[in-house]
């Protein structure tokens, strides 16, 4: 009897442990959304009311639009975040696992890209339910855009995926020269959290034209902010097309840079004998 109880206990903990992995990480990934929501609720609550009783807006966002924005950047990040990519590459460089790509007729970057692509599809499929419920609960804050906007939105998300991938891959490849990428990546992630617009729409920094100009030129906004703005139809006509073109240029630019960096890194690597 005791034996079977023990077996029951062991198999139960194994199963629970494995599912806990999935549920805990999903739960953790929702936490920043919750706190950001509440922070903005508090900000809108503290803002002075207009005398004519009009709805409070902050940098052109009503409360509802802000909520919609915060939900949409989550979708952007679902495409553009690459947890563990940079550190994985850096580990491969350090441990000498890189040799497996050099010996086999396979290119590391293309391999990782297809691997990530598959991973993203699986991840989006598994989290569709919680996100579906969330969006359903907040359905009132959204106005569904027209078909062209949908098309532009999907395009911007695919490009966001590519920019996210090549940006992190570049940092990972920097592991050829950097001593330690993990803790560096931690800082970069925090930095990205702010400048990609995950915490606030970038209009908020409108008073600092140099800063907004810099953010306009840098690739970070395309990781979260830009796709969300496309969906909210705050980018239209020429502005939308120019935005998409810049995003496309960044995706290509980072791809080229990443390949070049990898190439130089490999030479550096073999010079040191691996």
């Amino acid at each position: 009897m005791m034996k079977y109880l023990k077996i029951l206990h062991i198999s139960l903990t194994e199963r629970l442990a494995y599912r806990a992995d999935f549920f805990l990480t999903t739960f953790f990934r929702f936490l920043p959304l919750v706190t950001t929501f509440l922070l903005w609720e508090a900000i809108y609550a503290g803002a002075p009311k207009a005398d004519d009783g009009a709805e409070t807006t902050i940098v052109g966002f009503t409360r509802d639009k802000m909520i919609a924005y915060l939900l949409l950047v989550q979708i952007s990040r679902m495409f553009s975040s690459m947890p563990g990519l940079a550190t994985g590459i850096a580990h491969d460089i350090r441990d000498g696992n890189l040799k497996k790509y050099l010996l086999q007729p396979i290119d590391m970057l293309w391999y990782l890209l297809s691997y990530r692509g598959a991973h993203k599809i699986a991840y989006i499929a598994t989290t569709a339910l919680p996100y579906g419920i969330l969006f359903f609960l907040f359905r009132d804050v959204f106005d569904l855009p027209g078909p062209w906007t949908w098309l532009a939105y999907f395009l911007s998300l695919i490009l966001a995926f590519l920019i996210g991938f090549f940006f992190e891959a570049c940092i990972g490849i920097a592991g050829f020269w950097l001593l330690e990428v993990t803790s560096f990546m931690y800082i970069v992630n925090i930095f990205t959290f702010f400048v990609s617009g995950q915490l606030f729409p970038l209009e908020l920094l409108g008073e600092y034209p140099y800063l907004t100009a810099a953010l306009e030129v840098l690739p970070f906004q395309y990781l979260a902010y830009f796709p969300a703005m496309v969906f909210l139809e705050k980018r239209q006509g020429t502005e939308l097309i120019v935005g998409l073109l810049i995003e496309f240029a960044w995706a290509i630019g980072l791809l080229v840079f990443c390949r070049w960096l990898y190439h130089v890194g490999l030479r550096h690597y073999s010079a040191y004998g691996g």
Partner: peptide, 19 residues
């Protein structure tokens, strides 16, 4: 070690400390 096999602790810590 046994609950979150493939996650980086850095990421989990960043998410958790949002609180």
């Amino acid at each position: 070690v046994w609950l979150m096999r493939n996650q980086s602790l850095f990421e989990m810590w960043w998410l958790f400390t949002t609180l």
